[in-house]
Design a protein around this nucleic acid. Structure first.
Lengths: 252, 252
DNA sequence: TAGTGGTCTAGACCACGAG
DNA sequence: TCGTGGTCTAGACCACTAA
């Protein structure tokens, strides 16, 4: 005892009828990422190292890693190693941004921050972010423009408990790509999101900001973004003029 | 020669630097489905049978099958075998229907057919279905209702070359779930789709059909549905009242 | 009981990247 | 040249289904 695969009886259970080893390994790897032991961009131990450490075959570790690669949690690089996925702007654009022009080309809008302040969560905000009523949140309003033309109005709501350092000065200097900033400054990586889409009529205020007539139809995108352990971390409501752009989705 | 793995040198190439075996096997399996050798719901040969037939190990066949299962092309049933996926209404609802009520529950709308006739393809229809200008198509208009309330207007366009037997009588008797019908009556299985979403204003006609005021915002969903070999086979444009319902999407 | 897919092992060789 | 992931093999045992 004390060496070989004996030393992991506390970690991995091989009891008949229990959860398969590769699933236990998946959870273990996710736990090490969620727990901060491995951060986005870090290399993780090689398949052989992990198989020795955990007392299983390389193939079993491989299967666990493969499923996490499929879920965009890890990234393999042949000849180099396996890495924790990080949010370069390419990935954000590819996975989390679905607006394209009428030729199907995605392009990144510019952003102008209108306001950035702390406030008490509205009912909707508290519900969507799973916060108690009355919790303080950071509230950001932005205009997003394509080729100089204001096209989307965005309101972003974040729990102040985590993002409190934002919103302390009224006019934050915010980057265009918030998810990269969440990762770098707050060690929070967005891994998935739920979006609800509706058609709504532009208010006078919204119409003025987008150079439209009041009542013009806008596409509303209500997004809740989740971390790896499925904690809701951001509510983002976008209202988009879809005259020149549209929301694009592929179904399998 | 003439037995064992020798007999597949014409089918599978093991030359150094060529496409991996499991990918070649994937294509071979897809070809047998696209070609009609195996139809939706059919059982395919077991992993052992295929590995003997193709002269590879079971593990290699397994990897090919696994990727097709991930893409919803095949379906494994432990202890029974592997089957070609078919379009039960569950799958259609789960993969191809994204409208849910404000609690996030998906429910199936009823359909009333307004018209069903042949006509010449419009420019948009020809483009989306990759048909030559002036090609004949079948054009269907439907109202879809949730709990008795008319909520969506749908226009479906199909190439008459394939679906010609529809639209010969003006008031077709169409089932609620068209994709099941395509599969059963025309041996066409929808495997993926591209959707474009926009907000539009209801015309007088549309408003009347949906009990709304003219100009009310509607969510327009323009869907092109594709077969397994990526041939566009259906253009469906839906205009949806999103007061009580919304479009729901999950991003990874 | 026989046959299927599901998990797991051990080991081979290849392709790639870095030193 | 060495270590990494990528592919492929051969064989073991388990869990499930149907006859």
């Amino acid at each position: 005892m004390g060496h070989g695969r004996e030393e992991n009886h506390l970690l991995l259970s091989t009891v008949k009828g229990s959860i398969p080893l590769y699933m236990q390994i998946k959870e273990l790897l996710v736990a090490r990422i969620s727990g901060g032991l491995w951060s986005p961009g870090d290399i993780i131990p090689s398949e052989m190292q992990l198989s020795r450490e955990l007392g299983v075959s390389q193939g079993t570790v491989r299967k666990a890693i493969t499923e996490l690669v499929d879920k965009n949690v890890l990234k393999r690089k042949q000849g180099r190693g396996t890495f924790v996925a990080n949010h370069d702007s390419q990935r954000a654009l590819f996975h989390f941004f679905h607006i394209a022009d009428n030729h199907g080309h995605k392009l990144l809008p510019d952003s102008t921050t209108l306001s950035c302040r702390r406030k008490t969560a509205s009912r909707l905000e508290a519900t969507r972010l799973q916060l108690a009523a009355g919790t303080t949140v950071v509230h950001i309003r932005r205009v997003r423009t394509f080729k100089g033309q204001p096209t989307m109005l965005e309101t972003v709501t974040l729990p102040a408990k985590i993002f409190g350092s934002l919103g302390k000065n009224k006019a934050c200097d915010l980057p265009n790509m918030l998810y990269e900033m969440y990762e770098k400054q707050f060690s929070i990586t967005i891994h998935s999101a739920e979006e609800l889409l509706r058609a709504v009529a532009a208010s006078k205020r919204e119409a003025a900001l987008l150079n439209l007539s009041p009542g013009a139809p806008l596409l509303e995108i209500e997004r809740v973004a989740l971390t790896l352990n499925r904690t809701p971390i951001e509510l983002r409501i976008s209202r988009c003029n879809t005259d020149r752009y549209h929301y694009q989705n592929t179904l399998f």
